[in-house]
Amino acid sequence: MPRLSRVAVLLLVLPFAAGACKKKPVAVEPEPQMPVTPAAQPTTPADDGGAAAAAAAEAARRAIEMARSVLLQTIYFDYDSDELRSDSRAVLDDKLRVLNANPSLRVRIDGHTDERGTDQYNLALGRRRADQAKRYLIDRGIDASRIETTSYGRERPAAQGSNEDAWSQNRRGEFQIVAGGAELRAP
């Protein structure tokens, strides 16, 4: 499971980083409003300027979507533990770049647990997991006021079932965008 997550992280981050390098200046602009003139739809591929602009806009859009998916990527925990695993730290490092590029962005971290243990303790444990992730980010320069934490304990499982596969998917921290999501910029 940790190994799989790591691969997933790499797959997400690599194209994202490449896209960000190439098209950074474009990404700063809001979505360019293409003047659409219905009378003069180009029919030949000779119109290089329009195609390039469209490609740039598409790349910018994808970079922003990538930033959003990095921001919302879930992190996972071991049983009855609030320690950040190495795969979770890597995900948080990626989130750091997005948070740094978007000073007005505010997020909430929702801690979750598996169904084992007691329901009441699981709420406190979920909160502790969310707080660990928050500490990691504010220790690296993110203002504490930009991150809220809460916990759902075992109340909102991501996977159903009473087996390790389901449990490992349920011991997690989910990220929600509280403010600033509409004008998200890629790092």
């Binding site: 609030d82 009441q120 406190a124 909160r127 502790r128 969310a130 707080d131 660990q132 928050k134 500490r135 504490a144 809220e148 934490t149």
Partner: peptide
């Protein structure tokens, strides 16, 4: 009752 607050969310 038990309470954790945002500033010290890891403790209850």
């Amino acid at each position: 009752f038990a309470r954790s607050v945002e500033a010290t969310a890891g403790q209850t």
